[in-house]
Amino acid sequence: MSKALKISLIAFVAFLATVGFGTRYAASFINPTQLTRLLSASVKEATGRDLKITSPVSLHLFPSISVSAEQISLSNAPWARNPNMLTIGKIDLDIRVLPLF
């Protein structure tokens, strides 16, 4: 193996490690409780209905962006019979970043 190929391979592995540690570090600053409040406020502003997430929300940024939560409910209109328009036991959202490139 040539010296240039070895240096390129080491630089590529170092770059991947830096990106991995950087995303882990960035994810440590995101508070799941604050994320839940932000989601609820955004839904309230957009629809006028209350979004309740009773379990903790988990967020992962590497190797793909994923969000998972349990016990989610969206309130119904005041004139409706049922108090909740939507009830979800568990939801997992996963966005794979590499295919986007």
Rank of each mutant, 00 (worst) to 15 (best):
M1T: 09
M1Y: 06
M1W: 06
S2H: 11
K3Y: 08
A4Q: 13
A4D: 09
A4Y: 07
L5W: 08
K6M: 10
K6D: 02
K6E: 02
K6S: 09
I7A: 13
I7S: 07
I7P: 01
S8P: 02
S8Y: 06
L9N: 03
I10T: 12
I10Y: 06
A11N: 04
F12S: 13
F12T: 13
V13S: 13
A14Y: 00
F15S: 14
F15I: 15
F15E: 04
T18C: 11
V19W: 06
G22M: 08
T23S: 07
R24K: 10
Y25W: 15
A26R: 06
A26S: 12
A26H: 05
A26W: 13
A27T: 09
A27V: 08
A27I: 02
S28I: 03
F29T: 11
F29D: 09
F29S: 12
F29W: 14
F29A: 14
N31I: 00
N31E: 01
P32W: 01
T33W: 06
T33D: 15
T33F: 08
Q34W: 00
Q34K: 10
L35V: 02
T36F: 00
R37M: 08
R37Q: 15
L38F: 07
S40G: 10
A41Q: 15
A41V: 05
A41S: 15
S42D: 11
V43S: 02
K44M: 12
A46Y: 06
T47C: 08
G48S: 07
R49Y: 10
D50L: 09
K52H: 11
K52W: 04
I53N: 01
T54G: 04
T54R: 09
T54A: 13
S55Y: 02
P56R: 07
P56L: 04
P56H: 03
P56G: 07
H60C: 06
L61Y: 05
L61R: 05
F62I: 14
F62Y: 15
P63H: 08
I65G: 02
I65E: 03
I65K: 03
V67W: 01
V67P: 01
S68C: 06
I72F: 02
I72T: 02
I72P: 00
I72R: 00
S73H: 11
S73Q: 13
L74S: 05
L74R: 04
S75Q: 11
S75C: 05
S75H: 05
N76M: 04
P78R: 06
P78M: 04
A80K: 10
A80W: 04
N82V: 08
M85Y: 09
T87S: 14
T87K: 12
T87I: 12
T87H: 08
I88S: 05
G89F: 03
K90F: 10
K90H: 13
K90Q: 12
K90C: 01
L93Y: 09
I95A: 14
I95T: 11
R96A: 14
V97W: 09
P99G: 03
P99V: 02
P99Q: 03
P99E: 03
L100K: 06
L100N: 03
